[in-house]
């Protein structure tokens, strides 16, 4: 596997555990009075492509919202670079952590280039205008998501797959070392899902730390370097997919009997369900 080769620079002396800039420490997550998770702790290893999986309503999206400071924990702390993320100024945090939300709204009549440019907001001051750095970031973001040719098109006119790449470009234009992706492939067909996941894999190889919530366990096992399996608001297992994805784990987490074989293409674990009925 390629994961060791890429990210860490030559100067860094590796400690035994990979450093984690971002993590949740003993957080309790709740919407109003409905508690989703209690005393949950998760570390996001630097330079990893972390994927969070689990059954519906296990709290995986809620955890991602907390990591992206969209949801304030009722207890515990989300920690970024050793400090509570709540102590960061909003724009300061937005220069470190980017988020691709589950749903966003494109304003009427906006072009692809203009939408991508809105990702530059955290880098702009109250009165500062469009800078060369803004221009370069937007150009780069559109190139790496292959939407440069669509730059002048209206976002409303695009297909679902194109649109999701444009939203990804907007997050990339934010130029954050950490990217959070909330079910980025949900409404796409299989070809566009793979296209988008390959794009994220490229970003990961380029040095970014990614955290994604994915529904498809096989996609997760194929693309993740670090897998977090959740159930009922708690982490059941975490680690490299080839170490932790077993038939027992899948049955424990999803309640689904299955066989785990090697993916014939990548060699990563491939989950093949048996019938759900006894």
């Amino acid at each position: 596997m390629r994961e060791e080769s890429s990210v860490t620079g030559p100067s860094v002396e590796q400690q035994t555990a990979p450093r984690a800039r971002l993590g949740a420490r003993d957080v309790t997550l709740a919407y109003d009075t409905r508690v989703i998770a209690q005393e949950l702790s998760v570390e996001i290893p630097d330079g990893s492509f972390t994927v969070i999986v689990g059954p519906n309503a296990c709290g995986k999206s809620t955890l991602l919202r907390a990591l992206s400071r969209l949801l304030k924990p009722t207890a515990g702390d989300v920690v970024l670079d050793g400090r509570s993320i709540a102590s960061f100024r909003a724009k300061e945090a937005a220069r470190v952590i980017g988020l691709l939300p589950q749903s966003s709204t494109a304003p009427d009549g906006i072009t692809v280039a203009d939408l991508v440019a809105r990702g530059r907001y955290p880098h702009q001051k109250l009165v500062s205008r469009w800078s060369a750095a803004d221009e370069a970031a937007v150009t780069r973001a559109m190139e790496s998501t292959h939407v440069t040719d669509l730059a002048g098109r209206l976002v409303d006119e695009l297909s679902g797959g194109q649109r999701q790449r444009v939203w990804a470009a907007m997050v990339l234009a934010q130029e954050t070392p950490i990217l959070l992706l909330d079910e980025p492939t949900t409404f796409l067909d299989i070809a566009h899902q793979i296209e988008l996941l390959d794009l994220f894999a490229d970003l990961h190889r380029g040095g970014a730390t990614l955290v994604a919530v994915l529904h498809d366990l096989n996609h997760a096992a194929r693309y993740a370097t670090h897998l977090v399996a959740m159930r009922d608001g708690a982490v059941v297992a975490s680690g490299p997919p080839s170490d932790i994805v077993t038939a027992d784990l899948v049955e424990e987490v999803f309640g689904l009997p299955c066989v785990v074989i090697d993916d014939p293409v990548t060699g990563t674990p491939l989950v093949v369900p048996r019938s759900g009925r006894p």
Partner: peptide
């Protein structure tokens, strides 16, 4: 004029606006 830039961000939806650092 001062509020125009964050207002543009609100048009993207609450989540995207907050992720971009809008309070």
């Amino acid at each position: 004029a001062v509020l125009a830039a964050p207002m543009r961000q609100l048009e993207l939806g609450d989540d995207a606006a907050r992720a971009h650092g809008v309070r």
